[in-house]
Design a protein around this nucleic acid. Structure first.
Lengths: 206, 206, 206, 206
DNA sequence: TATGAATGAGGGTTCATTCAT
DNA sequence: GATGAATGAACCCTCATTCAT
């Protein structure tokens, strides 16, 4: 039946299935059998291509970086010619949108953190240093408050977004919010942008 | 020697060991054998007391709430007679201190989230609703900006703290920060408080 | 069915089966499944008692020493009051008899040697040093040739016996010997004793 | 580069690698992967040439005979014109030297014996029958004791040598011998020759 | 209450072999 | 002749759970 000897396609299918599985259950919770069932590739063949479960995992991690960094660079390119407010808002909006759409990366990154498997994915590193650079530049240009360290800004930008994504559901239940998930996202983003702008604006610019 | 038929003490010892183990490796990554080794209680006896690994896990989750909620209530009690700024700062400071010292709860909560084992721990529910209440009250009293939803404030308070705790180490490495971990914590807290205060302050009070 | 909870007996049964299996197929060639089938003890239970295939193997090795050393000590005790010839002959005869009856030890020892698993069994060490001591004593007493090193004597005593045991069958086929295996053993032992005596006898005693 | 379609060379390379591997780890302990890694020839190709692991093993065994028998014939040819003592000593010396230098044959032969894979290699058969013939001839010529069966002589010649080769190392450790391995070999050979000569010498010739 | 014997399922990995290319 | 994709069985070991003592 499945005798098409196409190693590359097989690998892709395995990686896809593995990414989903690892995101769902983490490293320890994902058996090769599970990946096999998901992908339709036999366990033996998976090991033939990736030699080890560990290696497969790292391959998955590597693959995650790919589309990830675009968020920032694209937003950054749009900077030229726009005012500070517009640019900053755009960066935040894209970051939010990324976390919102991201299904696997966030979870795999958390798993990796807990399972002590890799301190950080390449994507995270890029995001962190990328954002930090932008912030520093803007501080130099006087557009944002230079008295606050970039890493504090960073925490105050990504932290709330991640937190929101994770607890949104619980908030809805506990605080008895009536809006739909999408509506809440819109409200959150709107208010978050407004407040953050207030934070970042340089004192002198007031 | 250690054959005292003391069921209660045995259970405590198991719970303690289990909490550490689950915090470290999560549910899937923790074997009863591991808990047995850590606690010195035989696997058989563990199951005698908790009947199931799953049950043990839930017992651990239940136990986590204990010291957790005090953070807020204590800070809240101190509120009386102090100015808004002082109170808010105290709440934030204590929240920060809590996350800083917390070793097991945060991790177990993350594990639970990822492993889909329980939507939230009791402690988290209490923290969330508790903080939300305080915020609402302060908004009613006009001390903080009423145009921003409590859940946005919440995300912007706890989100950055959690984020900082998790990524502090990577920041140090990537951004080449020279300070010690303690110094950075102090800097972070200081700047975070200053900025957050700015956010929360009601427009009218400016 | 098999619910008699007798750990000791189970262990004995496993050890017995393992000894046979290892003797037959060596470490690499013996699967725990094979030991399980031979002993009627489930693989899981085998591991429960011995934790590891490796550990089981070492346990088997340890057990081999037990009855082994008796050969020499018993022969040695008979020494008192007998002439040199009689004593030496007795030691050789017992050594021969030991190798002749030994089924598992010799093979396991060979396997260990080839598989690089343990340089030597305790039994072998005891036999070697024991025989060497006897030889040295006799040399001191002037009963056997002191100009030949003990280790050469040792090689010339055990070497031929082991060799004979191993190749007897092939000899019979290739050299077209008509006698039965038992008859050949008798012939070998008789001639071997006669010749060896001649070697060992001190020149002065001639 | 190395895609020369040279079947013969490929086969040689595989055989060489396989011989080493089998000598080291035996049949069960050697995987085709191991042979592949050693030889640089893919597993698929190995099986293309030898069809089966079993077949490869037998091919290796066949190849072992080659240089082996020369030991004796060369020594035998030197016989002419020399005295008995000189000839016998020469045969023993060469036999010893052979075992001393032999690395793979001895081990593979042992493996085969234990693994019940082939009763004996061709080389062994030749050595055995060859030596037996020489002994018989010499007995007929009256140069060596005719009252001792050839197979006893054989055992007493090869047995000690093999034994020495295998246990030399342990002897050094246990008996606390200070000499180097080479010095001990020299001592052993010297004393062994002296003693053996004494054995073989016909009574009448004394 | 407490131990540890016993089970059976499943996990990652190795391996000989087949077969399409 | 040569590669490596693909398979399926076997291997050692871990684990949650049951049960006799």
């Amino acid at each position: 039946m499945r005798k098409k000897r196409d190693g590359e396609e097989t690998k892709m299918r395995v990686l896809q299935a593995a990414e989903e599985a690892f995101a769902e259950k983490g490293y320890a919770g994902t058996s090769l059998k599970a990946v096999s069932d998901r992908s339709g590739i036999s366990v033996g063949l998976i090991l033939h291509h990736f030699s080890t479960k560990e290696a497969l995992y790292h391959e998955v991690l590597k693959g995650l970086s790919a589309g990830y960094f675009r968020v920032l660079t694209e937003a950054g390119q749009g900077m030229a010619g726009h005012s500070f407010q517009e640019t900053a808002a755009e960066v935040l909006r894209r970051t939010f949108e990324f976390w919102r759409n991201d299904t696997t990366h966030h979870r795999i990154s958390l798993w990796s953190y807990l399972e002590n498997r890799s301190t950080q994915t390449d994507a995270e590193t890029q995001l962190t240093t990328g954002l930090a650079e932008i912030i520093t530049k803007m501080q130099a240009a006087g557009s944002i408050d230079p008295s606050v360290s970039p890493f504090v800004f960073l925490s105050m930008i990504i932290g709330p977004i991640q937190f929101w994504m994770r607890y949104r559901q619980q908030f809805m239940e506990q605080l008895n919010l009536k809006e739909t998930s999408e509506e809440l996202d819109a409200i959150f983003l709107d208010q978050f942008l407004r407040v953050t702008e207030k934070i970042m604006k340089s004192e002198e610019l007031r």
